[in-house]
Structure formats: C-alpha cells, structure tokens
Computed example of a mutant assay.
Amino acid sequence: MYEKDGEKYFVVDSHSHFWDASRENWKPGAEQFAKGWIDCFYGYHQLAPPETHWDYEHFLKVTPEDFERDMFEEGHVDYAVFQSTYLREWYTDGFNDIKQNAKLLERWGDRLIVNGRFDPRDGEAGLKQLREDAAQFQLKGVKLYTAEWNKGSRGWRLDDPEAHAFFEVCEELGIKNIHAHKGPTIWPLDKDAFSLDDVDHVATDHPDLNFIIEHAGIPRIDDFCYMAVQEPNVYAGLSVVIGALMHARPKFFAKVMGELMFWVGEDKMTFGGDYNIWTPKWQVEGFVDWQMPDDEAFTDYAKLTTASKKKMLGLNAAKLYDIPVPAELQLPTTAGEPMAPGEELVDNTAGARA
C-alpha cells in the first residue's frame, strides 16, 4: 500500500518478472541473441531516474531477497502478478518460465499470482502442458508473446486457427486474463510480430476472456485506442507506458495517457511496473504525483482524479484477478464488467470534455 496526503492506494503490479539472464543460462550457439535481448532490456532500464539504475551484473539476475525488498518492502506493492516468458531458443532453462516463477510462491503465495503461457506452435503438446500448468498452479491468466521464436518460426498471430483451441481451453479452465505483449519490440524479435491487427478478432470471438494488451501497443497508441474502445473486453496494460515514458518522455507520456483516458477509460487500465526492468517504487510515487500538463497542447485531455489513479494502480487489476481489497481501500469500478457497445465511448468522451 502507498499513502500520500491522507490517501491510501492499494497497489497491484500486474506485470512483473523474476528472470534468469545470467551468462550461465545463455544457450550455447545462441549467446548473441541471449545477450542482445537482455542488453535491449538494460537500455530500457536507463529510461528510469538515474538514482534507480542498477549495474549490469545485478540486472542479469536478482535474488529472492532483492525481489522482496524491491516489490513488497520498498515498492508499495500489495500483490504482484508474474508474467511467464520462456525464450528457450536463447536461454537454456528459459528466461522467466512458470516453474522458476512458482518457486517464489513458497515465500509469498499470499501476495503473488503466477501466470502461465501458451504457444499454438506447440500443438497438442502445448495444450496438454497448458492443462497441466492450470491444474498445478491454479492459473488465472497467461502471457502471450507472439514474436517469440520457435523452431524456425519467428512469430504467430492471436487469430491463427491453431490458437483457437488454446483460447477455448482457457475458457474451459477459467483462465480469463490474457496478457498479450503488443508494443515495443526487443532485439532480435521482429517488430511486426507484435502488431495489434489480431487483437480485435479474438476479443470479439471470446467475449468471456479479458485481453490485457501490455504496453498499450505503444508506439501504435492511436491504433490501440481506436481498436480498444470498440472491444469491451480489451484493457490497456500500463507496463512500459509508465516506466519508459513518465520520466524520460514526459510530453509523450501525457499524450498517451490522454488518449487512453479519452478512448479506453480509467476502468480499463492496469498498472505494471515491469520488474525487473524497473522497480515499482518510483513509478507508483511518480504516478500518484503526476498530473496532465496545463499547457495548451493538452487542454482537451482529462485530468486524472485520485479515484482514477487508485483504479489504475490496483483496483482494476484486483477485480480482474479476484484479489481481496480491504474495505477502506475500495472504490466503485467496472473493471471486468463489460458495458454495452458504445456506452463507454459516451462516458469516456464526456469525462474528457468535462
């Protein structure tokens, strides 16, 4: 929990990791890709305030003690959601797979949720693994990485016919939260494999699933907003949006938040600190203090209220994941309760023009 000026904020970090990018885990023959990947992440790390920067060796692999301090002791996080990313083409034991993440459940199972993943290119074996993971870890969500390399393939689409069976299994098993990386690319992945063009198709076909589009499609923010406003079960994940832009690109951050507020609305945004690219402390504190600029270029964007920030920082994600929120920290929110087509557009634009 974070408290500022008498206001208390329940914080759910819905996009975090516990990765192993150590040199010992770089896959023989693919070392240049393993190194290039984590080097790109380390470049994103530099977009945070200088006083939060880590040295490279620490960045490669943190300890459970680091995680506890950075997230729960200093980071104001009440609950964290681990997003699994495998990358076994480059990392021998996986970059950030479900079993590695789940080891921390023994210590913080009351504050930590572990998400799985699937890749339709794995076929029947992948469906079997998804069922096994759901049974073992009581999955509430999955992370999808459509640009991941897999046996010579350099990407897939959410609307591929092979993916349909996996979404059906998610519906069957109650895995309702689908986190899809749709935003900045990371070398050596292909930028177009993170295109947003496949999101509305599957969101329409699977209305009982929540599609949390991580990084809100940036830099394709306009494409995302015009798509998300018509899909009641599409949400904007604010990971990278806050971490990469709030400090380093403040004017672009204001534009992105303004467009998201206008089109998507405060009830369909979720905070993600993207640990361990960045720590959550400075992001939570900075976002609570942040306000839309007063200069003329931003006058048609809505100001964020305290209630808006409480929703985005935790309450929306808490509802999506059935996380209990103390009564004194609750606010009314419609996250997870799709409105009638067109209703949100009217509400959001009215709020933006107020």
Rank of each mutant, 00 (worst) to 15 (best):
M1C: 11
E3F: 00
G6L: 03
K8C: 04
F10R: 05
S16I: 05
F18E: 01
F18Q: 02
F18V: 03
W19K: 05
D20M: 10
N25M: 09
N25Q: 10
K27D: 12
E31H: 08
F33K: 15
G36Y: 00
W37P: 00
I38Q: 03
I38C: 06
Y42F: 14
G43E: 00
P50T: 10
W54R: 11
Y56W: 06
H58Y: 04
L60W: 06
V62Q: 14
T63Y: 00
E65T: 07
F67Y: 14
E68T: 04
R69W: 01
F72Y: 14
E74V: 08
G75E: 13
H76Y: 13
D78F: 00
Q83Y: 02
L87S: 13
R88F: 04
E89M: 01
E89V: 01
W90V: 03
Y91Q: 03
D93M: 02
D93L: 03
D97L: 03
K99V: 09
Q100R: 15
A102Q: 08
L105W: 07
W108V: 11
D110L: 06
L112I: 07
L112E: 05
I113Q: 08
V114H: 08
P120C: 07
P120S: 10
E124L: 02
A125H: 09
G126A: 08
Q129R: 11
R131M: 08
Y145I: 10
Y145S: 08
S153W: 02
S153L: 05
R157H: 15
L158A: 06
L158H: 02
A165S: 14
V169A: 15
E172D: 14
L173M: 14
K176M: 05
A180S: 15
K182P: 00
D190R: 01
K191Y: 09
D192R: 14
S195Q: 09
S195N: 13
D197L: 11
D197A: 14
D198L: 01
D205L: 12
I212P: 07
I213Y: 01
I218R: 08
R220P: 01
R220H: 10
D222G: 06
D223H: 12
D223I: 09
F224M: 11
F224H: 11
C225K: 05
A228E: 07
V229L: 14
P232Y: 04
P232F: 05
N233M: 12
V241H: 09
A244P: 07
L245D: 05
M246H: 09
M246V: 08
H247R: 04
K251P: 00
K251F: 01
F253Y: 05
E259V: 13
E259K: 15
E259L: 15
G265A: 03
G265P: 12
K268G: 13
K268M: 11
M269I: 04
T270C: 15
F271S: 07
G272P: 09
G272I: 03
D274Y: 04
I277W: 06
W278T: 15
W278K: 13
T279V: 12
K281T: 15
E285F: 10
V288A: 15
D295C: 10
L304A: 11
T305R: 01
T305N: 06
K310W: 04
K311R: 13
K311Q: 02
A317E: 12
A335E: 04
G336E: 09
G336M: 06
M339K: 13
G342V: 04
E344S: 12
L345F: 07
N348R: 09
G351Q: 08
R353Q: 13
A354L: 10
